[in-house]
């Protein structure tokens, strides 16, 4: 079972934070096929959030085929997410590390680097310069 948490300042919609945490837990093997997600009521009472938000997150995960709602029983993980082999052997991580070292060398501090990575990532995924 996983415990959700919320970052109210992240700007990421609440339902999407739940979706991302389930995906992450499945990717890291914290959640395995057959594991049950917390019930809507449990999530709602822990986080004091709207039940429709939890339902929306679970519907999205269901649509992705990651979990399956079983009537009257709850929501269960149906499949794992295969982490990319590249990330497994660490080459992406190494490249990123050497890039971060270069950025450090160029005088960027941690906050500058975070901001730059976030901006480039967003640009790559949305095609929009933020």
């Amino acid at each position: 079972m996983i415990q959700f948490r919320l970052d109210s300042r992240s700007g990421v919609p609440t339902y999407m934070q739940l979706v991302l945490q389930v995906r992450q837990a499945v990717r890291l093997g914290v959640l395995r096929p057959g594991d049950q997600l917390p019930t809507v009521k449990e999530v709602v009472e822990t986080l004091a959030i709207n039940p429709n938000t939890v339902l929306k997150a679970y519907r999205q995960l269901d649509g992705e085929g990651l979990v399956e709602g079983r009537r009257g029983q709850g929501t269960y993980v149906t499949q794992g997410i295969a982490a990319t082999t590249a990330a497994d052997d660490g080459s992406l991580r190494e490249e990123l590390l050497s890039w971060v070292r270069r950025a450090q060398g160029a005088g960027l501090d941690e906050e500058d680097i975070d901001a730059l990575v976030a901006s480039v990532t967003r640009e790559a995924f949305t095609g929009r310069v933020a």
Binding site: L6, S8, T14, V40, K41, V44, E45, L47, A48, I49, N50, P51, N52, T53, V54
Partner: peptide, 26 residues
């Protein structure tokens, strides 16, 4: 919110504090 999850209750609440409404309201 627990009550809303249990029964599908419709809730209308007024508030001048808006800080955590985003997590509660749809």
């Amino acid at each position: 919110m627990g009550a809303a999850a249990d029964t599908g209750l419709t809730v209308l609440l007024s508030s001048h504090v808006i800080s955590d409404l985003e997590r509660v309201c749809d």
